[in-house]
């Protein structure tokens, strides 16, 4: 048992148990283009898995299938906990309702429970966890890009999801805001213990956050790496750098070096 697996097991015993994800023989095509060709993948409960690859490799399609936004042409997607796993999604864009104030946007994340009496209190707690409690009454139009994504994170987390799917949510942010968001995301994951699936093209981000990195190429798994370094990880450490090199070599081919 690796360290990451042990940590996953510990977290899985939290009050909202994380769900494992099992994919078998997933096929998905758009028109003539077959994006995923018989993909198999097992994600342990509570694991933080990063899916990386070049654009068009099918990583976003994979996320949309797991999140239930699209249906596969063939194959099965199962969550261990059965019926009521509602995976939450953080999109590339914040996708906040511009006509609802910040707190109402977070309440959207409660799903069917947004009409319960304590909805407002729970939304405020989630907003406080991303450090934006004082902006509850503001319109999204008055927030910065990073603040909008933090509200989107609060919305995704307010229902205490068992699976959180992240579709390059930090891609549009500036470098400093992105690092802040990464720590926020990591802290939320350690606190709540959900299963996290992060789709990204940023290898450094994957190495900084994930227990396991899966490289997709032509709709199939080309590389599957466990990431050992303890958290919080220090950027620029030799171990970190070596891992990043390995993945970049595989992505770009060894020819990139003279």
């Amino acid at each position: 048992m690796s360290l990451a697996e042990a940590a996953s097991l510990l977290r899985a015993s939290a009050d909202t148990p994380a769900a494992s994800i099992t994919l078998r023989g997933i096929i998905k095509s758009f028109g003539d283009k077959r994006v995923l060709r018989g993909l198999d993948l097992d994600v342990a409960a509570g694991q933080f898995i990063a899916v990386i690859g070049r654009s068009g490799c099918g990583k976003s399609t994979l996320l949309r299938l797991i999140a239930g936004l699209d249906a596969p042409d063939a194959g099965a997607i199962d969550f261990d906990a059965g019926a009521d796993v509602a995976p939450r999604v953080m999109f590339q864009e914040p996708r906040l309702l511009p006509w609802a104030n910040v707190i109402a946007n977070v309440e959207v994340g409660l799903g069917a429970r947004r009409r319960e009496a304590d909805a407002r209190r729970r939304a405020l707690d989630a907003l406080a966890a991303v450090g934006l409690a004082d902006r509850a009454a503001d319109w999204p139009g008055n927030l910065s890009g990073g603040q909008k994504q933090r509200v989107a994170l609060a919305r995704a987390l307010v229902s205490r999801p068992r699976v959180l799917a992240l579709d390059e949510p930090l891609g549009a942010l500036d470098a400093l805001t992105r690092i802040e968001m990464q720590s926020l995301l990591e802290a939320a994951w350690r606190r709540e213990g959900f299963t996290a699936l992060l789709v990204t093209h940023d290898v450094a981000e994957a190495v900084a956050l994930a227990d396991r990195i899966v490289l997709l190429e032509d709709g199939a798994v080309a590389l599957d790496l466990d990431v050992a370094p303890p958290r919080p990880r220090l950027r620029g450490s030799p171990e970190f750098g070596r891992l990043e090199e390995t993945i970049l070599d595989r992505l770009l081919g060894p020819r990139r070096r003279p």
Partner: peptide, 10 residues
């Protein structure tokens, strides 16, 4: 995109 988001939240 907003409609898709809202649907994904039930």
């Amino acid at each position: 995109q907003l409609v898709e988001m809202a649907r994904s939240y039930g």
